[in-house]
Design a protein around this nucleic acid. Structure first.
Lengths: 243, 243
DNA sequence: GCTCAAAAATGGTATAGACAACTATATTTT
DNA sequence: AAAATATAGTTGTCTATACCATTTTTGAGC
């Protein structure tokens, strides 16, 4: 199970082993892991090496340590998805609403200046421009324009409207999504937004812009969304880093 | 500098020492730190103890390690502070603006229903209610109402207006701030907000509500802020957790 | 059964040392 | 002068051990 001759560090192998046990459900949330001493005996490694593996997982929130008690599989916090980066689809589901979508525009074009800048490409780069009205329980919730780098994403079928682009790119294209940057801003609905969202011009809208990066740091998509101010609140959990 | 008889762990003392050197500018971004071996000799501690201190700081992004080269003070990524939970004061400084504050109201009162709920206390609980206009380079940026549990925070001097409440509570009260929950919402300025922010009634405002928790999970404060929509964008970096 | 004290088990901190992998510099060889 | 080689310095990984603080379990005595 642990290969001391592997080029991969032992602590890393232990980490992956633990992750797998949790992923496959062999270890359930709340379950106590073998103690560090047991671990080190079973794998014939030093306890400090086990700790190096467990410490990282504890920092990630996968495991919970309690002095004198043991190390446990952490509960998958229900709100955790919103802690990070979510698609509209995932967001609405987490709120108990049925996500939907109406495709307004779907085309390939060269990247506008701001988009090229955000995606760190040239203005000649071909990008998808996808405009959708996003529905929650069949009521307009947001008007969203997505720009995706064609080179990275490959062909995107036009029927994305009813599924999460994220899950499509992850499952069909094997892209690994990493971090994202978002900005939030309050504004008033312009004519187009008011029309698509079925609200009055000048009604409050929450503008969210997001740049999504792959795990290697390459910008994948740039999304501008206008959410109805009267129907949508964005929730996020944040962690304080000591200065 | 390092006290082996202190109740605080040695690695923690080293951590704080490094932080202070960076904060005070004695160590500048890009500077190379003394090597781990030098550190361990100078402080007469084991190298592993030094590593424990440095590892955490590297994880936080304060330091950068490069194998074969050394450990360096990380560039203070402009957006990084906003990755976590920041006070208005810290936020504005990170944007290169001079934070200021005008005290509008400062009193003790029993907690209103929503506040009691957010702070997980009873409505009879005494809380501070502090209303402040927050300035950036002397221009109104946000109108903020803070509720803080008296029992947890103890007496708060009235001159908080010119400092960060966070830093006061951390430094003077020894409270350790943990996570926070925030909601973002677009709205239109009501009469009071318009007056305090020197904008028109009905102008767009970004409403941010935040509950701040201590490390042990106890709610410490509940803050409602109205930011000028024409002057403020909230930036955040988020990380995607695999489902 | 109950209580209290002792023992065992657990994670937290710390040591002293070893070798590996990588980088930069100095030195030698060509 | 250029290239190859050695050398020193750095972080990365790992070992074996020790003691501490907290929690749980055990067991003796009642």
């Amino acid at each position: 199970m642990i290969d001391k001759n592997s080029p991969l560090p032992i602590y890393y192998q232990i980490q992956e082993m633990i992750r797998k046990k949790i992923e496959t459900g062999q270890w359930q949330p709340g379950d106590m892991l073998p103690s560090e001493r047991i671990f080190s005996e079973d794998f014939d490694v030093s306890r400090m090496t086990v700790r190096q593996a467990v410490t990282e997982l504890a920092n990630e929130g996968v495991l919970m340590r309690e002095k004198g008690k043991g190390t446990f599989v952490a509960e998958p916090k229900i709100e955790q998805p919103l802690q990070g980066l979510t698609s509209f689809t995932e967001d609405m589901k987490a709120r108990g609403l049925e996500p939907g979508s109406t495709l307004i525009q779907y085309r390939l074009r060269t990247a506008p200046g701001k988009v090229a800048e955000a995606l760190q490409t040239e203005v000649e780069t071909e990008v998808y421009e996808i405009k959708r009205v996003r529905l929650a329980d069949d009521v307009p919730m947001a008007y969203e324009t997505t720009f995706i780098n064609l080179e990275l994403a490959g062909d995107i079928p036009e029927d994305v409207e009813n599924r999460s682009i994220y899950s499509f790119l992850e499952q069909e294209r094997g892209l690994k999504i990493g971090d994202g940057e978002q900005t939030f801003e309050a504004s008033l609905a312009n004519t187009e937004e008011a029309d698509k969202l079925a609200i009055e011009e000048g009604a409050p809208v929450l503008l969210i812009q997001r740049i999504t990066y792959l795990e290697d740091g390459t910008p994948l998509e740039y999304v501008k969304s206008a959410y109805r101010g009267d129907r949508y609140k964005f929730n996020i959990k944040t962690k304080r880093f000591t200065k």
